[in-house]
């Protein structure tokens, strides 16, 4: 046997093998690269999609908030306005020419339904009417006892007439009257406001 030829053949064989391995390696690497690139691409796409949906979510969140805050602000403004008007009106109500009569009627009307002891509670500012009411009730009915008290819980005006024997209170305070009518009053004010704005707009246009 020729050593060289054997050597050569071994060399050739190993070279072939090496080449084959290299080639395989290169192929493998190439595929890995491709996979890797694809993976990155996929990742990028998911990230993009995720970011986009995240952004969409944030955007709609912002939009939602903006719309709602504007709506709420509008309502709050109107409400504050109504509050101010009502307070203004209520502050001046005592000087209204019909206030005294209103108070007298309220107290008398309630007391007429009470056969026994009567207690009339007035806003501290309405103390001046105390004697007059007392007198009117004495003439009108035959209550055993009539008491007139100041009640700091009554602010705007009107009165509470207490029938302690039956556990009843006739409430004719302005606060309660407003409370009962608040919805209607708010509606009215809003209507007036809307009419005004519409009117003005048509003028400016």
């Amino acid at each position: 046997m020729d050593n060289t030829s054997l050597e050569n053949s071994i060399k050739r064989a190993s070279e072939e093998m090496i080449a084959e391995i290299r080639e395989k390696e290169a192929r493998e690497l190439g595929r890995l690269d491709e996979d890797y690139a694809a993976e990155i691409e996929r990742f990028r796409k998911t990230m993009e999609a995720e970011t986009r949906s995240r952004m969409d979510q944030e955007l709609s969140r912002l939009e939602n908030r903006a719309v709602l805050e504007r709506k709420k602000l509008k309502l709050t403004t109107v409400e504050r306005f109504i509050q101010r008007i009502v307070e203004d009106v209520m502050r001046g109500i005592r000087s209204h020419p019909r206030y005294r009569q209103f108070l007298m009627d309220a107290a008398a009307g309630a007391a007429a339904q009470i056969p026994e002891n009567v207690e009339v509670r007035l806003a501290p500012d309405d103390g001046v009417y105390g004697n007059e009411i007392d007198e009117a009730l004495r003439i009108a009915g035959d209550h055993r006892q009539i008491r007139i008290e100041a009640d700091a819980a009554i602010g705007w005006g009107g009165c509470l007439v207490v029938d302690s024997a039956r556990g009843r209170i006739f409430n004719r305070t302005l606060e309660r009257i407003y409370f009962r009518k608040a919805l209607q009053i708010r509606r009215k004010v809003l209507q007036v406001l809307q009419d005004r704005t519409e009117g003005k707009e048509s003028v400016t246009r």
């Binding site: 309220a106 009307g109 556990g167 009843r168 209170i169 006739f170 409430n171």
Partner: peptide, 23 residues
């Protein structure tokens, strides 16, 4: 317009319930 009536005779309170008398 007549005054609205508030009742103050509660004869009891039980759980979420109140019992109002003299109505």
């Amino acid at each position: 317009m007549s005054a609205e009536i508030e009742y103050t005779n509660l004869s009891g309170i039980a759980g979420p319930l109140i019992f109002v008398d003299g109505i």
